[in-house]
C-alpha cells in the first residue's frame, strides 16, 4: 500500500506529540501546585494572625443542648444559604439518593463561592 507519509515518521510524530502534551500539562501542573501552596500558606498565616489578634473569650459554662423534636437528626448549620434553598437542596439530595429525607442527616450547608 502507498502511504502519503512514511509510517515510521508518523509514529514518531504521534509519540512525540503525546509526550509534548504531557510535558506541557506537567509544567502547568507544577506551576498550579506551587501557586496553590503559596495561597494555602498565605491563608494559614492570615488565619493565625486573626486568631492571635482576637482576645481569648472567657470560659463560659457549657450550654445545655437544646431539646430537639422526636425523630429529629439534630441541628443543621446554614452558611450563606436561605432556609428555603436549603430545604430544596435536601429534597434533591434525598430524591437522587432514593432515600427518605428522615433517614438522612445534614450537618451543614455552605455556599461555595
Amino acid at each position: 500500500m502507498y502511504f502519503k507519509m512514511p509510517v515510521g515518521e508518523a509514529l514518531v510524530y504521534a509519540l512525540l506529540g503525546y509526550a509534548v502534551v504531557f510535558f506541557g500539562i506537567c509544567l502547568l501542573m507544577a506551576v498550579v501546585m506551587i501557586m496553590g501552596k503559596i495561597f494555602i500558606a498565605k491563608d494559614k498565616k492570615a488565619a493565625a494572625a486573626k486568631a492571635a489578634a482576637a482576645p481569648a473569650p472567657a470560659a463560659a459554662p457549657a450550654e445545655a443542648p437544646k431539646p430537639t423534636a422526636p425523630g429529629s437528626a439534630g441541628e443543621l448549620k446554614l452558611h450563606d444559604v436561605e432556609p428555603k434553598t436549603a430545604a430544596m437542596i435536601m429534597a434533591i439530595v434525598a430524591d437522587k439518593m432514593g432515600k427518605p429525607l428522615n433517614e438522612l442527616r445534614f450537618i451543614s450547608i455552605k455556599e461555595v463561592k
Binding site: M1, Y2, F3, K4, M5, V7, A10, L11, Y13, A14, L15, G17, Y18
Partner: peptide
C-alpha cells in the same frame, strides 16, 4: 495521536 497514525495508515497526508 492514535487516530493521526491510523489516518496515515489509511493513506491521508500528514
Amino acid at each position: 495521536f492514535v487516530a493521526f497514525f491510523g489516518a496515515v495508515l489509511l493513506g491521508f497526508t500528514g
